[in-house]
């Protein structure tokens, strides 16, 4: 069952203002829930303490699966399932396997990685859209705090903090806790 949480958020007009606000928030030890933006902001990840994505490792494993699938499948066909004999010699044309092996490496890696990407991000056609503010995908940069169950005082401090750092709009919204 999904639980609800209260989110207090502020919208900034410029990504530089937001970066400054995140820094200030870290200095004061305020726990940021998340940052939402219309495009990737460079230099934000270390401030939020986000580790580097491991998607490329997944991509590598999927790619390896593809190479092995293609190479072993073709080898099985030529060696075991339907062996050809030319000039009295067995036929295992490895160089001619390279193109298909390469293509399946790319195919498995790409498809696997994109599916992984959508799953770990919780994105799907059925995902209910839940955004804090409609302008976040347009031109506003959003800094959000989780204020569920905290005293009104705490929310008040956060609110004045957001306003001090230049947020042009501050509000609260209930979101489902994922």
């Amino acid at each position: 069952m999904k639980t609800k949480k209260n989110v207090l958020y502020g919208l900034y007009d410029d990504e530089q203002d937001l970066l400054k606000a995140v820094k200030a928030s870290n200095e004061r030890g305020l726990k940021i829930m998340d940052v939402y933006s219309p495009f990737p902001i460079h230099g934000l990840d270390p401030l939020l303490g986000l580790k580097e994505s491991r998607l490329h490792i997944a991509g590598f494993i999927f790619g390896l699966t593809g190479s092995l699938t293609a190479f072993l499948f073709m080898s099985w066909i030529y060696k075991i399932d339907w062996p050809n004999v030319f000039g009295g010699k067995p036929y295992w044309p490895v160089p001619a396997f390279i193109p298909i092996t390469f293509e399946l490496t790319v195919l498995f890696s790409g498809v696997g990685m994109v599916i992984t990407y959508f799953i770990i991000n919780g994105l799907s056609m059925k995902t209910e859209t839940e955004v804090l503010h409609d302008r976040i995908s347009d031109d506003k940069f959003c800094l959000a705090y989780d204020v569920t169950g905290t005293a009104g005082e705490h929310a008040g401090t956060l609110e004045s903090f957001l306003k001090e750092t230049g947020a042009s709009f501050v509000s609260t919204k209930e979101m489902s806790d994922l």
Partner: peptide, 27 residues
């Protein structure tokens, strides 16, 4: 809503987005 897969644009979303774009470009 269906086409956008419920995209939120959180910091982690964008980080993964950049990662997947880069690797797909490399592939």
């Amino acid at each position: 809503s269906a086409l956008s897969f419920g995209w939120k644009g959180s910091a982690k979303n964008w980080q993964r987005f950049e990662s997947v774009s880069l690797v797909l470009a490399g592939l």
